[in-house]
Design a protein around this nucleic acid. Structure first.
Ligand code: FES
Ligand code: FES
Lengths: 141, 141
DNA sequence: AAAATAAAGGATATTAAGGTCTTTTTATAC
DNA sequence: GTATAAAAAGACCTTAATATCCTTTATTTT
């Protein structure tokens, strides 16, 4: 469904947000240890998220990553779009150039339902919701 | 959502099924021309579907591919599983080892809805349904 | 039987995703 | 100011998906 980069990104964001509750900032090593994501690859993903202003970062000693805005202002849609692009939210299920209800592919009517559900899900859930559903050692399995 | 192989596979199957109405069999070249899929790659996909008994094939002159069983006995689920495997139908949205409602990832409750919708969609639709939604030159765009 | 046709199979090439390493830059702590 | 810590940036490697080509096998037509 989502790319590895996206899965890792979301996991890392929950960890950063969770940590933000207490110490405000958290470094790469800790993020990856908690989110169980490969370190250098995750670094790339976070660099991208910083550029897109989803998160902030600070260099140097006692630096790290943090969430700049309110958690409920960052939707799952924002995150997925930032990492994977918006293709998944609009793409034709059979890979045709553009999903087109006027000239629908044979799967259109059925696929639209699934894609709409995905859109709704991503638009109606934000980082705060994810952090609420985040408990302890989930990523340790 | 689905792999290219899967998109091509489904498209090819609709073409084979549609053709089956009249001439019973249809060859690679015609399939690919109608389904707008790369020829040699599609060949591999169909070979796989033949092995999995989703379709039948015949070598030699006037040979080709055809659907062996009733169209409504081949669900979208069967097709996707045959090509991409069943991972997408059970996988955790955040890429954890196994989706586990007892130890849910932060996205579990939300993601489950989308995944269930996908499951239902694929189980409740079959090749006959797709052929019904198939009209003329759809793949020409 | 021979020729022709079409799928099967195997080998190889290309591209994109996933992942790692090293160097550079920036900020903090001392 | 110097040393240190941490992110940014860039280069590179690996793997898997996608795609093509060539040879073999089976079947039909003549
Ligand atoms: S045209 Fe294929 S999903 Fe809409
Ligand atoms: S545990 Fe992640 S989707 Fe169920």
């Amino acid at each position: 469904m989502f790319s590895k980069a996206c899965e890792y990104g979301i996991r890392a964001l929950t960890v950063i947000a969770e940590a933000g509750k207490e110490h405000k900032k958290i470094g790469m090593k800790d993020i990856c240890k908690l989110a169980k994501t490969p370190e250098f690859f995750t670094a790339k993903i976070l660099q991208n998220l910083v550029k897109q202003k989803i998160i902030g970062s600070q260099k140097g000693p006692s630096g790290g990553f943090f969430i700049a805005k309110d958690l409920d202002k960052i939707t799952l849609y924002d995150i997925v779009e930032a990492i994977d692009g918006k293709e998944i939210f609009v793409k034709c299920g059979l890979g045709l150039d553009k999903c087109n209800a006027k000239k629908p592919c044979p799967m259109h009517s059925q696929f639209e339902l699934v894609r709409n559900e995905l859109n709704e899900m991503c638009r109606n859930n934000n980082l705060e919701d994810l952090v609420q559903g985040f408990h302890g050692e989930v990523y340790n399995r």
